[in-house]
Amino acid sequence: MSMRSQVYEWSNLATSSQTSTLRRTVDAVPQLVPINREYDIFIGGIGNNITKPAETTATQFIVIEDIACSAYMGGAVQVRINTTDYFQNPDVTDQAGVPGLASPYPRGSSDKALPLAQAQTDSTQLLKSFDLYPDVYVLPVQVFQILYSCQTALAGAAATNTIVVSAFVKYTLYDGPDALIANKLLELGVTINPNNVDWYKRTLIEQQQRSRVAAVATNGGSA
Rank of each mutant, 00 (worst) to 15 (best):
I35R: 12
Q31G: 07
N193P: 03
D85P: 00
V169S: 09
Y137K: 09
V98E: 06
L132N: 08
K52G: 11
T121Q: 15
S129Y: 00
A167R: 04
G108V: 10
G45N: 10
A215N: 03
P99T: 08
A28K: 02
S16N: 13
Q88C: 12
M1I: 12
K52P: 00
I64N: 01
E38M: 07
K170C: 02
G176F: 02
G156E: 08
V136A: 03
P115K: 10
V92A: 15
S123F: 00
G220P: 01
S129W: 00
G74C: 10
T172D: 10
V7N: 13
A96Y: 06
N183G: 13
V141I: 11
A68S: 15
G44D: 02
Q18E: 15
V169W: 05
E55R: 14
P106W: 04
G44L: 02
I67P: 03
D91K: 07
S109Y: 01
D66C: 05
D111M: 05
R37T: 13
P115R: 07
L147A: 08
R37L: 08
L154W: 01
A14N: 06
L185Y: 01
L13T: 11
I35V: 15
P194W: 01
D131S: 12
Y8H: 14
A182W: 03
Q125W: 00
Q209A: 13
Q31Y: 03
S70N: 09
P177M: 09
T203Y: 07
L132F: 05
P99M: 05
G74V: 14
A153D: 11
G100F: 00
G44K: 02
S166L: 06
L13I: 14
L154I: 14
T93M: 07
V190T: 13
N89M: 14
D94F: 08
R202W: 00
D94S: 13
E9A: 09
L147I: 13
R4G: 11
R80I: 09
